[in-house]
């Protein structure tokens, strides 16, 4: 029974990881950019939530109303003002610039908020749980987070394949120079993609802030979890990313159950095993 509970917790954790990954793979899909500062932006969102909660005294979940638009605007400006200049055939500039950004964000947060870890309090909902039979109980918050992750991923799928914006994303990703010739303003399209990615990051950040302690240095680990979820699941597939996140979450939970010090390692090992045996991921999108 304990194992079932462990796996269940891992699955729910996987939803959060899938959300870390969704923003990352959206950007890679649209503009072939891997944002090394992605994890630090999640932490930034968590701190924006902190400031919002402290200034307005509202529940952290409500702070989403502020944090999401703020992060989206940051994303649009960041892409339009800085990252668009790094796009091109050479892979060094975007990699190094986003790495520099990661360092800047981490140290900026360190200066503003110190290295002390903090956590946001969502109130009573944090301890509530639902009984799921067999003596098992699932926390309301983790369940809600998982549901939210599913909604976000379904939303992204819908956006990509059923809307004009999604069409623009796919066209610009296919062939940026012809996209321009069809009237698409690539600079604007890429900026919208980044805004969307950071909107997802905002949700992930608030969920992170409520779930556990956070401090300025935990960004890179979030990036790595998101990245591992993408690779395990398979490039190009949103639902695959969800599966990847779940597998990662379960691996970590199982590892922790075996030995508390092994939870992170278990996740990394799961990633390396997939990389060794099935490098294209478990559910890669079949290229049409």
């Amino acid at each position: 029974m304990e194992w079932v509970n462990t796996i269940l917790q891992g699955v729910l954790l996987g939803g959060l990881y899938a959300m870390f990954a969704a923003g990352l793979s959206l950007i890679f899909g649209v503009m072939r950019l891997v944002n090394i500062a992605h994890g630090d932006l999640i932490v930034l969102a968590a701190y924006v939530a902190l400031v919002t909660v402290q200034t307005l005294g509202i529940n952290p979940i409500l702070s989403l109303v502020i944090v999401v638009p703020v992060m989206a605007i940051i994303g649009y400006t960041l892409q339009r003002g800085l990252l668009n200049r790094t796009l091109g055939d050479d892979l060094l500039p975007p990699l190094l610039v986003t790495f520099g950004l990661s360092v800047i964000i981490q140290n900026g947060l360190l200066e503003l908020f110190t290295a002390d870890s903090v956590k946001l309090n969502a109130g009573a909902v944090e301890i509530e749980s639902i009984a799921v039979g067999g003596g098992l109980a699932v926390g309301v918050l983790p369940l809600a987070q998982f549901a939210l992750a599913v909604v976000v991923i379904a939303g992204l799928q819908w956006l990509f394949y059923r809307t004009a914006l999604g069409r623009a994303f796919r066209a610009t990703s296919d062939d940026p120079s012809v996209a321009r010739l069809m009237g698409l303003n690539n600079a604007h399209v890429f900026a919208l993609a980044m805004a969307l990615s950071l909107a997802i990051v905002a949700v992930a950040g608030v969920l992170l802030a409520v779930r556990a302690n956070f401090d300025p240095a935990i960004g890179p680990a979030r990036l790595i979890f998101g990245f591992e979820a993408v690779i395990i699941g398979g490039l190009g597939s949103m639902w695959g990313t969800l599966a990847g996140g779940i597998i990662l979450g379960v691996a970590q939970a199982v590892g922790a159950q075996l030995d508390p010090g092994w939870n992170l390692l278990a996740g990394h090992i799961a990633f390396l095993v997939v990389l060794a045996l099935r490098p294209q991921g478990l559910f890669p999108k079949v290229q049409g």
């Binding site: 069409r167 796919r170 066209a171 990703s173 296919d174 062939d175 012809v178 996209a179 049409g288």
Partner: peptide, 8 residues
Amino acid sequence: GRRLFPSL
């Protein structure tokens, strides 16, 4: 060369 968008 046409240059259609292949994933569309």
